[in-house]
């Protein structure tokens, strides 16, 4: 009994994303950012998106394409300091930006992917992070209720995938990718290579294809995936 084949064309995979959707984007800086899926999202042009990503990439890269194209209504992120467009749009109130401490962002996504409603943490007690959150007490100690963060879609970059969507990530390109892949109603993967079943040793599968809905193979990697020259 073979595993299901989830290979898809990039156009078909992204066409499910409509106006007003929430979209998680993997990546921390360049490594792990699904640039080709983002570029297709720009080409197809759904608007009023809520984008959830650790950072806003840099000028002329990834999230910046969506911002410049006016497709983003809200950004949920931990840091946008390397993207002047994001900083400007936030300051002009043209987009809403919700800052979340990086590990709390990761954990809210992880918890959503684990089928939970939230968790309690003491991170940010006594700082602005506390605003708008419910204080709860656990064993007599104060904490903040952090809600699970789900999305309609997750766009994920993997180094290798099989047709079922079992994934292998490179080096520091793992970051938010497996977490987001677990936390969306529909998870779309771009892989640098789709390898035959059995090529990925079971022990080296970083994310089970059980979480994946569509796998797109990248035939070539555009320059944006390369080493950033500063």
């Amino acid at each position: 009994m073979p595993l299901p084949d989830k290979r898809s064309s990039i156009g078909e995979a992204i066409s499910a994303i409509g106006d007003g959707a929430s979209v998680m984007l993997g990546g921390f800086g360049v490594p792990g950012t699904p640039f080709c899926l983002i570029r297709e999202l720009v080409r197809q042009g759904p608007r009023n998106l809520t984008v959830i990503k650790n950072d806003a990439n840099e000028a002329r890269m990834g999230v910046d394409w969506l911002l410049e194209n006016g497709q983003v209504a809200k950004l949920v992120t931990s840091h946008i300091g390397l993207n002047p467009t994001a900083m400007r749009l936030m300051n002009e109130a043209a987009i809403e930006v919700e800052f979340v401490p990086q590990g709390i962002l990761a954990e809210r996504i992880r918890v959503a992917g684990a089928g939970m409603m939230g968790f309690v943490s003491d991170i940010g007690l006594g700082t602005a992070v506390e605003e708008g959150k419910q204080r709860v007490s656990v064993d007599g100690k104060p904490g903040l209720l952090e809600t699970a963060l789900r999305a309609d879609f997750a766009l994920v970059h993997a180094n290798k995938a099989d047709a079922f969507g079992n994934l292998y990530f490179s080096a520091a390109a793992r970051n938010f990718n497996p977490l987001m892949a677990m936390a969306a109603s529909r998870t779309i993967v771009e892989a640098e290579a789709i390898v035959p079943f059995g090529t990925l040793a079971p022990e080296n599968v970083h994310l089970s294809g059980a979480f994946v809905d569509a796998v797109v193979e990248l035939n070539e990697l555009p320059e944006v995936y390369g080493v950033v020259q500063r």
Partner: peptide
């Protein structure tokens, strides 16, 4: 200056 806290709080 308001780029976001990244991981600094934790």
């Amino acid at each position: 200056f308001s780029p976001g806290m990244g991981g600094a709080i934790e």
